[in-house]
């Protein structure tokens, strides 16, 4: 997604919602990770205006807040697609052929790992291990695991998500 498109989305953010999330944690700087987790759960990502707001309310410099945010893989600074594809990059999946699965998905969607399709239909991500090693190679689309994949099965699976 382009930066302009993100900026446009960021205009309609309701900061009151953020306040109600922060409220119980005011004055507890060590709780910044749970705050970011809850805020992201609400908005789907961490919009810039929200980050600035948290910074002010929690008295944490914005730079430090971004320092924490960008350190952890869970936090996203850009909106994500309606469907999240997580390709398991665990060892078992790797040796059972997950690179071939990623390649096929990237071909079909024309995005690379970490990116979102322009129509916001899919976001493609990698995850260290889903823990379904017996079903390797595995991808998760939203909460549905799809295991024992071969590259030729990928297209049918993706077609099932709008």
């Amino acid at each position: 997604m382009s930066n302009e498109a993100v900026a446009e989305l960021n205009q309609d953010i309701d900061l009151d919602q953020v306040d109600s999330i922060i409220e119980p944690y005011l004055g507890k700087k060590e709780m910044v990770i749970p705050i970011l987790q809850k805020v992201q759960e609400h908005f789907g990502y961490l919009p810039r205006p929200v980050m600035e707001h948290i910074s002010r309310r929690m008295h944490i410099p914005l730079s430090r807040l971004y320092g924490v945010t960008t350190f952890y893989a869970q936090f996203k600074l850009k909106p994500r697609g309606r469907n999240i594809i997580r390709v398991c990059k665990g060892t078992a999946c790797h040796i059972q052929g997950s690179p071939k699965i990623s390649e096929r998905i990237e071909e079909i969607l024309d995005v690379e790992s970490g990116e979102t399709t322009d129509d916001l239909r899919f976001t493609l991500e990698e995850v260290a291990c889903i823990g379904c090693c017996a079903l390797a190679p595995v991808i998760m689309v939203n909460d549905d695991p799809h295991g024992r994949l071969t590259p030729d099965k990928v297209k049918d699976i993706l077609d099932g998500y709008e």
């Binding site: 060590e30 910044v32 990770i33 749970p34 970011l36 924490v68 952890y72 893989a73 869970q74 260290a128």
Partner: peptide
């Protein structure tokens, strides 16, 4: 405490920093 996805946090001193809300 829920981790936020950083492998290095399995290392004990990194884990402690993370509990304290730091990188």
């Amino acid at each position: 405490k829920e981790g936020a996805g950083a492998f290095v946090c399995g290392e004990e001193t990194a884990l402690l920093a993370s509990i304290e809300g730091k990188r």
